[in-house]
């Protein structure tokens, strides 16, 4: 019942609102067709990032996908926590882990072992629009621990202008969610994996700009 409610909200409200009002378009969702379990890795500029990726996923996959979010930011009130858990299956991680509890990495690893997919923003916090800051190591460690799980690079374009950090006004402007194909980490080295992941996202960014800037007279 709860899952049906969430699916309905996404298909009747969120997705039409995103596409027809805000101006979000989804590209290459076909890469998700054969996907089963994955870790989505995306750049992070806005609160819209998680919503858009969740809305882009087919409902079958959405049920099984958890967004990794900051417990320090979203864990302040119990209402946000329950909303995050309801709509994003959020896993809230905090910087300071209480003694005796599992570390953040162990929590995420456990979820992957349970068969869940993850959405991660390895930049950590929302950065400036158009720039991709350095990645945190957690994603590479997870990929090393779970070699059978692929990562899907996603480039999010324009969301930093729709709702930037520290702003509450939402402005409808064209944004793009561009999925890459599922890939496996080629090495066990954490630094190399991290660079690989970042390179894939930058490739998608380049592709996005090439699509837009294809300079051809007609």
């Amino acid at each position: 019942m709860r899952k049906l409610f969430v699916t309905l909200i996404y298909t009747i409200l969120v997705r039409p609102w995103l596409t027809f009002f805000i101006g979000v378009s989804f590209h290459n969702i076909k890469h998700l067709r054969d996907a089963d379990q994955f870790i989505i890795v995306a750049n992070h500029n806005s609160h819209f990032d998680t919503v858009s990726i969740m809305a882009a996923l087919p409902s079958k996959l959405r049920k099984n996908t958890c967004a990794v979010a900051s417990g320090d930011y979203f864990g302040k009130s119990s209402l946000t926590v329950s909303l995050m858990k309801l709509f994003f299956n959020a896993i809230l991680i905090t910087k300071k882990v209480k003694p005796g509890e599992l570390s953040n990495l162990e929590v995420l690893d456990q979820r992957i072992k349970e068969g869940k997919s993850l959405i991660m923003f390895p930049e950590g916090s929302r950065g400036n629009p158009g720039t991709i800051s350095s990645f945190k190591k957690g994603i590479a460690k997870l990929l090393k621990e779970n070699p059978s799980v692929p990562f899907i690079p996603v480039y999010l374009d324009g969301f930093g202008r729709v709702l930037p950090k520290n702003k509450i006004l939402i402005v409808p402007l064209i944004c793009k969610v561009r999925f890459g194909s599922p890939l496996f980490a080629t090495t066990n080295d954490i630094k190399t994996t991290l660079e690989e992941v970042k390179k894939e996202i930058l490739n998608l960014k380049k592709k996005n700009e090439r699509d837009r800037n294809q300079f051809e007279f007609y």
Partner: peptide
């Protein structure tokens, strides 16, 4: 603006 099309709608 160095663009070919305004969008791909």
């Amino acid at each position: 603006l160095k663009i070919k099309d305004t969008d791909d709608l």
